[in-house]
């Protein structure tokens, strides 16, 4: 175990308008290391493997428990969370890159605000009348709660979008996360009131129709959210709406 080390290389970029470049690092191995703790080591000793002084790595992170969705990046080519990527399970040298389908801010930081815009577009909320006292919430059976809870664990990490071959600048596809959230709120006894609006939004350009059912989303999702199931369910709902709109309006 002595002198064992961890080798990794990072695709870095100083600013949105500059060219990316690679830097290689080596840190001492310890059991239980994850990708984020590698970055922490670099911050304490910002020197490349070749001995060249460099800058600490810029990356988004917060909870480090895989619930906040911050530290998503490409690790050995795959979209995943840096905090739950254990060095012991990764092939070395570990390659670490920023997401490829979101604008790079700096190093591993990217702009994922498109997801929050999408959540606005599908009105992903329960439109309550107000926060004043209005008594108990609706009764919900445990089975329904369990379904909702699965979907409600989406932490907006955008792994599903990064891994999706259809999520790109030419399609402007909304991505699985937003569709699953639309399903979540359509399922809620009160949230349902906006169901038709949500479905209509998802029938706009970049909507659910752009899904190619490669099913990468559900494989990439760190929280095992039933994303393809959601796409199919909402897919049925939009078809029903389309047909009813055609015959009944």
């Amino acid at each position: 175990m002595a002198n064992k080390s961890v080798l990794f290389k990072i695709k870095r970029q100083a600013s949105p308008s500059t060219e990316p470049f690679w830097e290689e690092f080596e840190v001492e191995y310890r059991p239980g290391l994850n990708v984020i703790s590698l970055f922490m080591e670099v911050a304490v000793n910002p020197v490349t493997r070749a001995g060249k002084p460099t800058t600490p790595i810029n990356y988004d992170s917060n909870c480090l428990e895989e619930v906040c969705g911050s530290c998503a990046m490409l690790i050995n080519g795959k979209a995943r969370m840096g905090c739950s990527a254990l060095v012991d399970n990764l092939e070395q040298p570990i390659t670490i890159e920023p997401f490829s389908k979101f604008p790079v801010i700096r190093d591993l930081q990217v702009d994922r605000s498109v997801l929050f815009e999408n959540l606005k577009a599908v009105k992903a909320w329960v439109p309550i009348d107000g926060t004043y006292a209005l008594g108990d919430g609706p009764r919900i059976l445990p089975q329904v709660q369990e379904q909702a809870y699965q979907l409600s664990q989406c932490m907006s990490c955008c792994c599903c979008m990064e891994a999706c071959p259809q999520f790109n600048e030419s399609t402007g596809f909304v991505g699985a996360a937003t569709i699953a959230q639309a399903r979540l709120f359509n399922m809620h006894p009160t949230g349902k009131v906006l169901k038709q609006e949500r479905l209509a939004a998802l029938m706009g350009d970049g909507g659910i129709q752009e899904c190619g059912y490669a099913q990468n989303c559900v494989e990439a999702c760190p929280k095992d959210i039933p994303l393809t199931r959601s796409i199919s369910d909402v897919g049925g709902d939009v078809m029903k709406k389309a047909i009813l709109d055609f015959f009944r309006t």
């Binding site: 329960v126 108990d136 919430g137 919900i140 909702a148 809620h188």
Partner: peptide, 21 residues
């Protein structure tokens, strides 16, 4: 209790009893 009710109305997927409470 009022806060719980409000959160419930906002759609927090609280765990339920078989009666839906």
């Amino acid at each position: 209790p009022g806060i719980i009710d409000l959160l419930d109305r906002m759609g927090v997927p609280f765990n339920r009893t078989p009666e839906g409470l």
